[in-house]
Amino acid sequence: MKHAVITGAAHGIGKALAHRFAQAGYAITGVDMDTAGAARVERELDARFVIADLRSEADIARVLPKLIQGKPIDILIHNAGINAVGRFPDISIENHEHVIAVNFYAPMLLTAALLKADRIAKGASIVFISSLSHYTSYPGAATYAATKSGLASYARSLSIALAPQNIHVMTVFPGPTRTAHARRHSPQNTREEKRMPPEKLAHHIFRGVQKKKHLIVPGATNRMFALLGKWCPPLMEYAMRKVILEKL
């Protein structure tokens, strides 16, 4: 039985990923800090969770041995992520630091440690959940955007570094997805139905892994925004300022 490790698997996209990979016959190890949420998913899926607050380096050091003693990992998905929304000076420095810790630092620490311990199986995939903000910009969440672009860069380097070991690396740039995360951090939730259901996103990610893609932007509309943001940044930046920043 193949083994998938998914961070932030108690809710949202991570939970949908746990379901999708379990359905395909993977044994699931989730990493999350929400004990109750983790227990719920464990009951639904026969998944196993390790509880850790990924903001804390001590917690990461504590759970790593558990992951290292576990089965070799065929899929590692860095999904746990947090946001802090507001104008840069208005967000407390602690919140800025937490965003960097969970979204950027924790994935790099986990990846390096698991590679060092030789826990990533040959032929495995490492998946990084970045964000469409990498292409579109995200004023009102400058630090979040910074971590998501930094993560994409790390994945790009890793993809080349690990190719000789036959380890596949994929970066996902999801657009708005219908989760608690999006609900918490959007200026308004009136058009929530337009956001992609996490189950659908999870399926895109599953297929991307099967096809060994390196980059995916799930959804046609999101792909259009990514192209616009890449080739005509001022236009997308103007739109993001109007739609997000000025509504905060």
Binding site: R87, H134, P139
Partner: peptide, 17 residues
């Protein structure tokens, strides 16, 4: 390189703000 990419994006978004 990742830290520099993050810095670049931080600057870009601070500029928009």
């Amino acid at each position: 390189a990742a830290s520099k990419e993050a810095l670049n994006t931080l600057g870009r978004n601070l500029k928009i703000e």
